[in-house]
Design a protein around this nucleic acid. Structure first.
Lengths: 221, 221
DNA sequence: CTCGTATACCTACGACGTAGACGAAAGGCC
DNA sequence: GGCCTTTCGTCTACGTCGTAGGTATACGAG
């Protein structure tokens, strides 16, 4: 890839992210990253404490990609909708890496910012401290899981293997007993690879926002 | 642990699950499982195709622990509520293992059963095939993520290290700028370890069910 | 008793994360 | 320029991992 003598942390993270996107999380190894930069594996330890540190940095990169909308004076749920959409926009291109975020949001600055913003909207909606905390965690986690488990994702070394895996999955669905799994077979296509990414994510956000509005208003009553 | 000559697949899975629960996913190695059963590492390959196979089996075990309630003639959303609660009850004791489920639900029988049941309730609610498929994925993924990212979880080799990690996180929160993170600091306690597990999960289910009812009724209108 | 099959064992390989000591180069200060 | 300190990449080496390939044993059916 790049052949400079002086390593650069940001570029290391970029190639790490590229590897995750192309071949999955388990393809990220210290040795491979070093090879990409034509450098000894141990060189990376000048820039990261250990491999965990590399993964942490990938997570932070993803979170810092979120273009968090500024607060305005629209109702909280509209702002929440936009915030959630912004988060999804940042994560969607990196479904393999998104898994990393689940336990790392509160461990880096951009993650803290996002959480703060989410909490502030939930407070605005009238939630208590505890409810807001629990709910913020769930909302953020749900967004991540929406990306991670988007139907149609497969983890393989290369695109060929991934397509192959999809075909296999589809074939496997056809072998199921129609008596036992009628609904599953009816929705088979949509389950193995979602019909429209766009509507999948729009439904996801809608479900959460609707849930929030509903629970808030009934606890206010 | 057990010192029998004849290995037993179910018991292997049980000790694997025990290891995950106690020390996290990365502590599960072929060699350790073999050691627990006083056997050569290669012996395990008579019972699992490879390490992935072991993880698959753990996932399947978790899913088969779900005590799926029988269909009855209450409204769909009440049945959905109970189904979700049943799933959470099965996953809650194994937060470390729950991560495995995200990409494995559709890969084993108990997972298919659960998905079928979820789909059937969503159809009953009036959803289309595509909507039901997308929504079922999201609901199941959200339940899993609810468990995986329950506030207060830490991953360490032993309970001491985990408690230590919690203390560290709490301390880190106190160093945050109150100007920049007012809401986050206000909810700090609940974020680092949730006040009441019970209400955390109840809120989680409520949020989803409310969201479902809301989106269904508005698409019907 | 015999023989096929299932099971466990042994040996060995390559990839991984990373500790520790070392050398070279960059940058600040006179 | 000359020097010194800090930074950064290199080298060597260790222990652990997953697992391929071949071998030994024990059991059940004929």
């Amino acid at each position: 890839m790049a052949a400079q003598k002086r390593l650069n942390r940001d570029e290391l993270v970029s190639t790490a992210l590229a590897v995750v996107d192309a071949e999955g999380l388990e393809a990220v190894t210290i040795r491979r990253l070093a090879q990409h930069h034509e450098v000894t594996p141990m060189a990376l330890y000048r820039h990261f404490p250990d491999k965990e540190g590399v993964l942490d940095a990938i997570a932070e990169r993803l979170l810092s990609d979120v273009r968090c909308p500024e607060p305005d004076d629209r109702p909280w749920h509209e702002q929440m909708h936009d915030l959630m959409t912004a988060i999804l926009d940042a994560l969607m291109p990196h479904p393999n890496a998104a898994t990393l975020l689940t336990l790392r949001i509160l461990g880096c600055e951009p993650g803290l910012d996002l959480t703060e913003r989410t909490l502030s909207l939930l407070f605005e909606a009238g939630m208590t401290r505890e409810d807001a905390a629990d709910t913020a965690c769930q909302v953020l986690a749900s967004l991540i899981s929406l990306v991670v488990s988007e139907p149609g994702r497969a983890h393989g070394p290369d695109p060929d293997a991934q397509e192959e895996a999809l075909r296999a999955k589809r074939a496997l669905f056809l072998t199921l007993s129609p008596r036992r799994y009628p609904h599953l077979i009816a929705s088979a296509d949509a389950l193995v690879s979602c019909a429209s990414r766009d509507s999948y994510y729009r439904r996801g956000v809608l479900l959460l926002v609707t849930g929030l509005r509903g629970t808030v208003s009934l606890s206010a009553a």
